[in-house]
């Protein structure tokens, strides 16, 4: 159902929402079963994952088609900006919860545990700590090896992405393409080093509160870098197909915002998880 672009674009009936609902249902139900060692879980999860991939692919294809087909007007473009902005804000709040957990345990619960000498004789509150009840020794992660390199990588990737954006605004497709490729490469390198860091780490997610906060925060961050890299690849693909122009490239910008957000989260991680 197409409309002229003077009016706000209203899409016609769509199957995608239902598929979204089914895929999340399969994923959630399947994951529950996997966690509780029910054999059916894995196939369900795979089905859910496939449905999700189909959904993302199909839905975005539809939206991109509408965008390329010039169905969107300025107002729709603005809607996408509001939407993406507040989506990123919700992600900020998600990380805020985990950072809150980190600060709380470091500054409140560990000192309290140390006060409870009746229960935990000899325990002293230090950071990093695996708590009073776990005895095996561990080596915490220092900031100045890989993490520092990773910081540099991500910061550079932010710069290359901005450079690519400048290219786009000057209609310099080459600069745009190279900038994007560099950004993705830096992101992938970051992920590789992060995996390396995990493999070498002297502790696991089970190493008390230190291990838990470390792996959950860096893990969720890594997940976001992965998603960002995939999204950037799609943008690159679209650039190669000739999408976007100097005025009209919100898809690019949205992913760029996302990438910068992931960057900023990393800075906080570097300071509070690795360094202080």
């Amino acid at each position: 159902m197409s409309q002229n672009t003077k009016n706000y674009y209203l899409p016609g009936p769509s199957f995608w929402p239902l598929i979204a609902s089914i895929s999340l249902f399969l994923l959630a139900g399947g994951f529950t079963m996997v966690l509780n060692k029910i054999a059916m879980g894995t196939p369900l999860m795979i089905a859910g994952g496939l449905a999700l991939a189909y959904l993302l692919f199909g839905w975005f294809k539809e939206v991109i088609g509408e965008s390329v087909g010039k169905l969107y007007n300025q107002q729709v473009d603005k809607s996408f900006r509001w939407g993406m902005g507040w989506f990123i804000f919700s992600e900020v709040m998600f990380f805020f919860g985990f950072f809150g957990a980190l600060f709380y345990t470091r500054s409140v619960s560990l000192p309290w545990l140390a006060d409870a000498q009746l229960l935990w004789p000899g325990f002293a509150a230090t950071w990093p700590s695996a708590g009073p009840g776990l005895t095996e020794a561990f080596t915490p992660m220092g900031p100045w090896g890989l993490p520092a390199i990773n910081t540099l990588l991500l910061l550079t990737s932010g710069a290359t992405l901005t450079w690519a954006h400048w290219g786009l605004m000057k209609d310099n497709r080459k600069q745009l393409t190279i900038g994007l490729i560099l950004t993705i490469a830096l992101g992938v390198l970051f992920l590789y080093l992060q995996m390396h860091e995990y493999a070498e780490a002297g502790f696991t997610i089970k190493t008390g509160i230190y291990g838990a906060t470390f792996y959950m925060l860096t893990g969720f961050h890594g997940l976001h870098v992965t998603m960002g890299a995939i999204m950037l690849s799609i943008i690159l693909f679209r650039v190669l197909k000739g999408h976007f122009n100097a005025h009209d490239h919100f898809g690019f910008e949205a992913v760029a915002w996302y990438w910068h957000f992931v960057d900023v989260v990393w800075l906080f991680l570097f300071i509070f998880v690795y360094w202080l």
């Binding site: 708590g131 776990l134 008390g208």
Partner: peptide, 8 residues
């Protein structure tokens, strides 16, 4: 959420 591991 487990005190033995330093959680709360």
């Amino acid at each position: 959420f487990n005190a033995a591991g330093g959680g709360d």
